[in-house]
Design a protein around this nucleic acid. Structure first.
Lengths: 336, 336
DNA sequence: GACAGCTTTGCACACGAGTGCAACACATAG
DNA sequence: CTATGTGTTGCACTCGTGTGCAAAGCTGTC
């Protein structure tokens, strides 16, 4: 395991020399399903172990046209929901003997394109875009190159690319009915300035559902999708002459901020004075201080599906879109 | 940008054919500092653009001995502190024109070794271990292969590997003095069953500092490093006949759990009845409900230093260890 | 012993790129 | 016109691996 001197990686050639066989034999030893006699196989393995040999996946990918690399294009990885998604994806990919390359696309929008270009440089087997909308031209480039492209929570439905998203509208409807059942009538939505498809879908879904039963909805959507924005929304909405008694926050982070401000700055009790529903089911939603009723992201299922998209053999003939349901998690922020 | 027909990536050869030059010319066009006339350079660039050509970094890495890949071995990426570290690292690495490959080592300890082996398969330029202790043998293998190995918040100090950590003992001492200054004398520490060097260092640092001034410390360390564990610690410590009036939680997550239980289950006011200090300065520490006094992880500085370790030319002659200070963040959980 | 059938092995080529070397073109000075 | 120097270009080799093909080896049956 340690009899080498000079630095640098050891190649199959050196292993072959030590084992007294041809380089092909070494290659076949490490290729599942290839024909090697048990005898030489053992000799090769011993030599490889002694020299500390590791197959060079880059060279292998050069010839086998599949590198095992899957690119994850993410911005705001530090966000609770996204980080748990990255966790699930990396784990699942490894189980499928792939490896994740993370491209941080935080910042300017054009960075997304640069990121996907990186993907092409490394001949990834597939690219999963977790945020940001890639340009149409770069999508075409991916398709031409035979790159699989999987978009998460995005609107673009194009032939050849896989799209997986959440049924935000259904969840929003369910939230509305929960509020109605609790006897609430003065509704509000808190969103942020980030007009990503998921957030917009939840906001719009809630407003539309309310309209369909003849109710109006006050809205707040300003600032980043963070705790402070939720608090700002509370300050704005609760100071009105006709403050809401039920608030749908399109994100748990927003909901936490809203609740903090409602409790500490307005002295409101939740759910007695005010019902709140969030979205994502991030960790703190389960903490006793919040005990937030919310919708759970089916992270594991989505990750499984994404991995199956990556490993499946053939491309979808036309636009493929898979919608996941976000199950409601009942806790203590809605009056019953 | 779209005149190709069959799937698959386009090679430099095809670009050369279209541009009417040799493949070498194409190669040189994309190699900074190589000698190409402005005329052919332009012809090549145009052909490359038309065909959608992207340099194959894998093939380039094969010959240039440097792939631009840096492996991040992480477990529990979804944890607030680690996810922000991954965020910072991926961003900084990209700025240094490297790319991060994330290996999820969650689970069994032996997975760390598998993970590092992956690293070797892809001929990464360096490997950053964010959690878990790699085995000594695998470290040796890395060194033999010329792999740079950078350990974060680990104890192992070995020749050839870079070690970067936090000055946990200094922070623990500072926490103790803050408590003493606030008039607290009944001390406690809350940790978890995870005996990682950082957590142990903080716990031990606090206990030692207290002993040196003749004070005893009640401790709780059981369960995972999570909110629930902090709450359990509160239930245990606050139910004693002689409950603490100052608690140092080795992690913000633990501190949040402790505070929630102390407030809601024991009706204690913070900081009037009880002072609390955490560690990490995660996002919620800044939220009004917690306003936790804590120690900030110098994430940006650490990331910068790690990247400089990756890009620096020569290996450290012997064991290299860099200690970062964690500045105290004063908020509202310590009486003044 | 001859022959068929199967397994194992090595040769040689391919993958996609970088680069030393020599040939070449061109400009300038003598 | 020749000699010298400078800047481009292409050939051919290299990196580490997979694999088709044919040769070689082995086994078993008639």
């Amino acid at each position: 395991m340690k009899s080498r001197s000079g630095p640098g990686f050891v190649s199959a050639q050196e292993v072959a020399r030590l084992a007294g066989v041809s380089r092909s034999a070494v290659s076949r030893t490490f290729t599942p399903g290839a024909s090697v006699s048990p005898d030489t196989r053992e000799r090769v393995l011993e030599a490889a172990d002694r020299l500390g040999y590791h197959v060079n996946h880059l060279a292998r990918g050069l010839i086998s046209q599949t590198t095992g690399i899957v690119c994850l294009v993410v911005s705001d990885i530090a966000t609770p929901y996204l980080s748990s998604m990255v966790d699930a994806l990396t784990r699942r990919l490894q189980e499928a003997s792939k490896v994740a390359m993370v491209i941080n696309a935080t910042g300017r929008l054009e960075k997304i394109e640069d990121a996907i270009r990186q993907t092409l440089h490394y001949r990834a087997d597939a690219t999963v875009v977790l945020s940001g909308s890639p340009d149409r031209a770069i999508i075409q480039t991916c398709l031409d190159s035979g790159q699989r492209l999987i978009l998460l929570n995005r609107d673009e439905v194009l032939p050849g690319i896989r799209n997986v998203a959440l049924d935000n509208a259904a969840a929003a409807r369910q939230a509305l009915h929960a509020f109605l059942k609790a006897g609430c009538r003065r509704l509000a939505v808190v969103a942020s300035a980030a007009r990503t498809p998921s957030l917009v879908g939840r906001e719009k879904g809630f407003v539309d559902a309310a309209r369909s039963v003849g109710l109006d909805v006050a809205t707040w959507s300003d600032g980043p999708t963070a705790h402070a924005t939720g608090a700002a929304g509370a300050r704005h909405l609760l100071a009105r002459t006709d403050p809401p008694d039920a608030v749908f926050c399109v994100t748990d982070l927003l909901a936490c901020g809203f609740m903090d401000a409602a409790r500490h700055e307005f002295g409101l009790r939740i759910p007695e004075d005010l019902s709140v529903i969030g979205f994502d089911d991030i960790e703190h939603a389960g903490w006793p201080s919040y005990a937030l009723t919310t919708f759970a992201q089916p992270v594991a299922e989505i990750a499984d599906h994404v991995v199956s998209c990556v490993t499946e053999y053939d491309a979808p003939a036309d636009a493929s879109r898979r919608l996941f349901a976000a199950p409601m998690v009942w806790r203590g922020t809605v009056r019953r």
